[in-house]
């Protein structure tokens, strides 16, 4: 039954994870340049010491074995660029910020998206349908670096009702999460509308009407579950994408999230930070998709019995 399938997915994850570790490890090292190339005028002696300190003087295979060993102990190693800081520390500090931003954005996206899509499906081809669906096209097309400054301009500068940068008070959460969540809300609203409209045309909804059930009960009991399945399957990629894609938003609003480290480390060849952040994102994507599978199994009895 479904349980065995889910367990299989979990176990199948182990070799995939191993392959990902290996691939990133070697790819980043084969990229031209090294972590200390950009420091100007480093005396050869110091460079040598640095390389020694970070085991960069050893053969690549040995470094790989070292890394695997540390990883198995939950140690992602020291950062090459941020002296005296470990990757665990960096992630431990920055990731919760990104996670919080992502989760708040997702809540916005779900609230706005499902409400708008549900209304549109209840009153198709009316203003309740046309207006939110037109806005959602904007949401999907406009990039965050347009939406963000636009919201800052309207709510921060003109109306002055929301702070425009920082990550301290509750108010600081409003504009960044709206910026980040907007595109996802747009997408979810379209998925919701499509899903509900499709379900509503199915035979079993006609049966529910023929039984004399009121429309509201039909919506809640008979159409929501099946109609929201597309949204559920979208949630996994969405959550992962929302967190990983927070970079632009984090930059616009000066938020100390993980996105900055991710990009910076790749440019600086800060090998361990690249590895750490990539593995984190990979795990995140996997976990999100796994949770979606679990939810799907709960929602659709036909999957459960396969």
């Amino acid at each position: 039954m479904g349980l065995r399938y889910l367990l299989g997915r979990l176990l199948g994850m182990i070799p995939v994870f191993f392959a990902v570790v290996t691939a990133i490890f070697f790819l980043i090292r084969f990229a031209p340049g090294g972590p200390f190339d950009s420091e100007r005028n480093v005396p050869p002696q110091i460079l040598e010491n640095l390389n020694k300190k970070y085991h960069l003087d050893e053969p690549l295979l040995m470094q790989y074995v070292h890394y695997l060993n540390d990883l198995a102990h939950g140690d992602l190693g020291p950062s090459f660029k941020h002296a005296n800081r470990t990757v665990n520390e960096i992630i431990g500090e920055a990731f919760p910020v990104s996670l919080e931003l992502g989760l708040i954005s997702l809540v916005w996206a779900l609230l706005i998206g499902i409400t708008a899509g549900g209304l549109a499906a209840l009153k198709p081809n009316t203003a309740f349908d046309y207006i939110p669906m037109s806005i959602s096209i904007l949401g999907i097309c406009l990039p965050t670096f347009v939406i963000g400054p636009f919201l800052v301009l309207v709510f921060g500068m003109w109306l002055e009702i929301a702070p425009v940068s920082g990550w301290d008070s509750i108010g600081d959460r409003i504009l960044p999460s709206l910026t980040l969540g907007f595109a996802f809300a747009a997408y979810i609203s379209r998925l919701t509308r499509g899903g509900l409209m499709e379900i509503r045309s199915l035979d079993f909804v006609r049966t529910a009407r023929a039984k004399g059930l009121p429309e509201s009960l039909i919506l809640v009991k008979h159409t929501l579950r099946g109609g929201l399945l597309p949204v559920v399957s979208y949630l996994g990629p969405a959550l992962a994408g929302i967190i990983a894609g927070a970079l632009v938003t984090e930059t616009i609003f000066s938020i100390p999230g993980l996105g900055r480290f991710f990009i910076e480390s790749a440019l600086n060849r800060d090998y361990t930070v690249v590895m750490g952040t990539s593995l984190l994102y990979f795990t995140l994507i996997f976990v999100c998709n796994f949770l979606v599978d679990v939810t799907y199994t709960i929602l659709d009895p036909r999957v459960r019995h396969e």
Partner: peptide, 30 residues
Amino acid sequence: IRGNKIAMIFQEPMTSLNPYLKIGTQLIEP
């Protein structure tokens, strides 16, 4: 009146019941 004084059954038995709900749940609705 629907499902009460006048009931209706359809051609497509495979799709006329809600696949997401137990048969019992659907049966007791009327």
